[in-house]
Amino acid sequence: MTGRRDDEVTGLALYDRTAEDAAAAVIAAYSTSFGLASRMLGPRVRSHVRNIYALVRVADEIVDGPARSAGLDAETERRVLDDLETETLDAIDRGFSANLVVHAFARTARECGIGGDLVRPFFTSMRTDLTTAQHDGASHDAYVYGSAEVVGLMCLQAFVNAGEGAPRQPEPRLVDGARRLGAAFQDVNFLRDADHDAGALGRDYLGASTREEVLARIDADLDAAAEVIPLLPADCRRAVTAAHDLFAALAVRLHGEPEPEARVRVPNPVKALVAARAWLGFSPRSARA
């Protein structure tokens, strides 16, 4: 038994709030750019998007180094990842998990209509990182769908359904835009991290695709996504515009530095300008502007 004041939040409400605080802490520790964009989300959706990305981050860490640094071999990493997937799907069904990040995600999934059709492809791509070092065009596309496009679709479910009662399916134009924005984000990161992925992780996600081909795909995906961002609910548009424009700025720098000597970044003053433009309601920028 634990003592409490009568005016304190207790029981499931306290557990829910603690789970969401844990998810927010994960995001704050791992991504400053995401934190910048997420602060522009309206309160209706902000915690849901943090909950989604916190689970994604934990799964990434299982396959991208920390688990191996802790002494896990590939078979054990696979088992830990499988357990996380099972726990996530079970938590969505039952509404509770002893894992705070999973609990936060499950709350979002139940409210916003995120089901196994999106969760399973994500974990499938995460498992690919344990088994596939060299990708071709087909395996790249499958990996990007599970690792990035479905994350965009999860966020779209939150944008459309948070606080709205029974979840509904977003319209096809929004679905296509969410997928293409997620794909662009992932391909930008593949180019930025190519040296690290090859040297530290032994992975080549882009295969035979040339740098020019990847950049052309990124530009097309960013421009397609920009066309549908104005169709999003008003309390989501600024944040998605900011995220889009941050990656458009990265793409411009990748175009300008064919063989960068260091990981391409957006300088803080440019980030501030991107945030200001988005906050003031400017339309998403062209990928080549």
Rank of each mutant, 00 (worst) to 15 (best):
E75I: 07
E75A: 15
E75K: 05
T76I: 12
E77F: 00
V80D: 12
V80S: 13
D82W: 04
D82P: 05
D83L: 15
L84Q: 09
T86V: 13
E87P: 00
E87I: 09
E87S: 14
T88C: 08
L89P: 02
A91H: 08
I92N: 02
I92K: 10
D93H: 15
R94H: 10
R94A: 08
G95Q: 10
S97W: 01
S97C: 11
S97D: 10
A98S: 11
H103P: 04
F105C: 10
F105S: 01
F105P: 03
A106K: 04
R107E: 02
T108Q: 04
R110H: 06
C112E: 02
C112W: 01
G113L: 07
I114F: 02
I114A: 11
G115W: 04
G115M: 02
G116L: 11
D117A: 06
L118F: 01
L118K: 04
L118Q: 01
V119W: 01
V119S: 01
R120G: 00
R120A: 07
P121F: 12
F122D: 02
F123C: 04
F123S: 00
T124P: 02
T124G: 04
S125I: 03
S125K: 10
R127Q: 03
R127E: 08
T128Y: 11
L130I: 01
L130P: 00
L130M: 02
L130E: 02
T131G: 06
T131L: 13
A133Y: 00
Q134A: 15
H135W: 15
H135F: 15
D136K: 09
D136N: 09
G137C: 08
A138R: 06
A138D: 07
D141M: 02
D141L: 11
A142K: 13
A142D: 01
V144Q: 10
Y145F: 15
Y145P: 03
S147N: 01
S147T: 01
A148L: 06
A148C: 14
V150R: 08
V150G: 00
V151F: 07
G152E: 04
G152L: 12
L153E: 04
C155E: 08
F159I: 00
F159N: 03
G163Y: 06
G163I: 11
E164M: 15
E164W: 08
E164G: 15
G165I: 05
R168T: 07
R168K: 13
Q169N: 07
E171I: 05
E171H: 03
P172M: 14
P172A: 14
L174K: 12
L174S: 12
L174H: 04
V175R: 14
D176K: 06
A178V: 06
R180N: 13
L181S: 02
G182Q: 07
F185I: 09
F185C: 06
Q186V: 09
D187V: 13
V188P: 00
V188F: 09
N189F: 11
N189I: 05
L191C: 05
L191D: 01
L191Y: 02
A194Y: 04
D195S: 13
D195E: 14
D197Q: 14
A198R: 15
G199N: 14
A200F: 11
